Simulated assay, not measured.
Amino acid sequence: MPPSSNSPFPRLLPWLLLIGGAIGLLAAGVLTVEKIALLRDPSYVPSCSINPVLSCGSVMTKPQAEVFGFPNPLLGLAGFAVVTTVGAALLAGAAFRRWFWIGLQVGVTLGAVFVHWLIFQSLYRIQALCPYCMAVWAVTIPIFWYVTLHNLNRFTRYHPIPLALWAVAVLSLITEQFWSYWKTLL
Rank of each mutant, 00 (worst) to 15 (best):
A95H: 14
I174E: 07
A89H: 11
A164F: 14
R40L: 12
P142L: 05
Q105Y: 07
L26H: 02
H116D: 10
L173H: 11
G57K: 08
R11K: 15
F178P: 00
W99T: 12
A167I: 04
Y124N: 10
G93P: 03
S58Q: 06
S7L: 07
T140R: 04
G79C: 06
W117P: 00
V168L: 15
E34T: 04
H159E: 09
I143K: 01
G57E: 09
I174G: 00
R97S: 12
H159N: 12
V168C: 13
V139G: 01
T109H: 10
L165T: 14
A128F: 05
G107W: 05
W137C: 00
A89T: 08
F120S: 09
T84F: 03
P2I: 09
V136D: 02
G103Y: 06
N51K: 14
L185S: 11
M1F: 11
L163R: 08
W145D: 02
V170R: 13
G24D: 01
A27E: 01
V115T: 13
A78Y: 11
L54H: 10
P131E: 07
F144T: 02
H116N: 15
V83H: 03
N151G: 12
L12N: 04
W182E: 06
F114G: 05
P46W: 04
W99Y: 09
Y181G: 11
L123S: 03
T85E: 05
L186A: 14
Q177P: 01
A65G: 00
A88G: 09
G29F: 04
P46L: 07
F155C: 10
T140V: 15
Y158C: 09
R40N: 13
S122A: 11
W179E: 05
T61F: 05
V83P: 01
F80H: 06
T32P: 01
Y124R: 10
G57C: 08
G57A: 08
P3F: 07
G76A: 10
L152N: 04
P131G: 04
L186E: 12
T184L: 13
I23W: 02
A135V: 02
L149C: 08
K35M: 09
L163G: 12
A22M: 13
I143S: 03
R11E: 11
S4F: 10
G24C: 03
V106M: 06
F68W: 13
P8W: 02
E66Q: 14
Q127F: 04
A135W: 04
L13Y: 00
A164W: 14
Q121F: 02
A167C: 08
V45W: 07
R154W: 13
T140P: 04
F144H: 07
N51D: 15
A22K: 07
G24A: 01
R154H: 12
F155W: 14
Q105I: 06
L38E: 01
V108C: 08
A92E: 11
E66W: 05
L38H: 03
R40V: 10
K183H: 13
L123C: 02
V113N: 12
A94P: 08
R98K: 15
L16S: 08
V170W: 11
L26A: 09
V147T: 15
L185W: 13
G24T: 01
S49W: 03
